[in-house]
């Protein structure tokens, strides 16, 4: 057994060595470091400014940080009737759209994965269409139809337009996941006496759960942030959070409102990221997949 030596506080040439190795690191990883710094500036810079603005009471030009911090604007933001209404509405709307999308798309994707039918490949590719062209053009032509159907400015109209956006994710990801489940595993369950429904619920579904929850989370977050469709179809009567943020940023002189609303809008994606990580890391979903 060797006894542990207490680390000596002063090591001769310690800093000199560090400086030398730092220089060596710069030489080796110079480009990487540069890229990292640029990334920090480009991504974290704006975030930093938004966070500061959200908690700033007073922030005038030459100063790098606000002169005064406080929560006054938080109170004022949530006291606004439009925000108090739009936030819960947006959350419920996203939940409804995600649920509807799942109800429509999951059986379809199971069919895509398990059945062979004419035009299967073409149909699958067709869901790419909504993403292949500039979306605004698509929305405008949809808006024309919706106008005739009196769907403009209605919740139903917004739900419909947002459903269009969810199709690709909610069909493609689950289809791939269902295809990944070996048919023999389902047959083995049938063989021991399970009904088709039970096979789906207890064998197939648990096995595609990681992919499925990823698709559901992505759909929820995408819908929550969707602004173009909601803007075009929903206005003037239906206002979601992202739509409201557009108007707050464009027409308000008070920067804090925009900053606070964006912070609030980050929340779901942060929360969902954490949940997703738990889902994927925690043993119960991926257990047995050798992950």
């Amino acid at each position: 057994m060797t006894t542990l030596q207490p680390a000596s506080p002063v090591v001769p040439g310690f800093w000199a060595g560090t400086a030398a190795s730092f220089r060596a690191m710069i030489r080796r990883n110079g480009f990487g470091l540069l890229a990292l710094i640029v990334l920090i500036l480009v991504i974290l810079g704006p975030l930093y400014s938004v966070v500061l603005w959200a908690f700033a009471e007073r922030w005038q030009y030459p100063s790098l940080i606000p002169q005064e911090f406080g929560f006054t604007f938080w109170e004022r933001t949530f006291a606004r009737a439009d925000i108090a209404e739009a936030l819960p509405f947006s959350i419920i709307l996203s939940l409804v759209v995600t649920l509807l999308s799942a109800v429509i798309c999951l059986p379809a994707s199971y069919a895509f994965a398990r059945m062979k039918f004419r035009g299967r490949q073409l149909l699958l590719l067709s869901f790419l269409a909504t993403n292949a062209f500039p979306r605004f053009g698509l929305y405008i032509s949809i808006a024309v139809i919706f106008f005739r159907l009196n769907l403009i400015g209605t919740v139903q109209g917004v739900i419909l337009i947002q459903l269009v956006n969810t199709l690709l994710l909610m069909i493609w990801i689950p289809t791939a996941a269902f295809q990944g489940v070996d048919k023999a595993l389902e047959e083995a369950a049938l063989d021991v006496g399970a009904s088709r429904l039970r096979v789906f619920m207890q064998i197939t579904l648990p096995m595609v759960m990681p992919a499925l929850s990823a698709a559901l989370l992505l759909t929820f977050v995408n819908t929550f942030y969707e602004a173009q469709g909601a803007l075009l179809i929903g206005l003037p009567r239906v206002v979601t959070m992202p739509v409201l943020m557009y108007s707050l940023i464009n027409s308000q002189l008070i920067v804090q409102y925009g900053a606070i609303v964006s912070l609030v809008l980050w929340l779901p994606s942060l929360l969902l990221l954490i949940v997703a990580q738990r889902l994927l890391r925690g043993g119960y979903l991926t257990a047995g997949f050798g992950v």
Binding site: A184, A188, A189, L190, I203, A287
Partner: peptide
């Protein structure tokens, strides 16, 4: 009779244990 109603049990060529179950 469908497969789930037959008094037979099968061992498959592929590994068909359900991976999410112990």
């Amino acid at each position: 009779l469908s497969a789930n109603r037959r008094p037979t049990a099968m061992v498959f060529q592929k590994y068909t244990l359900w991976p999410h179950m112990k």
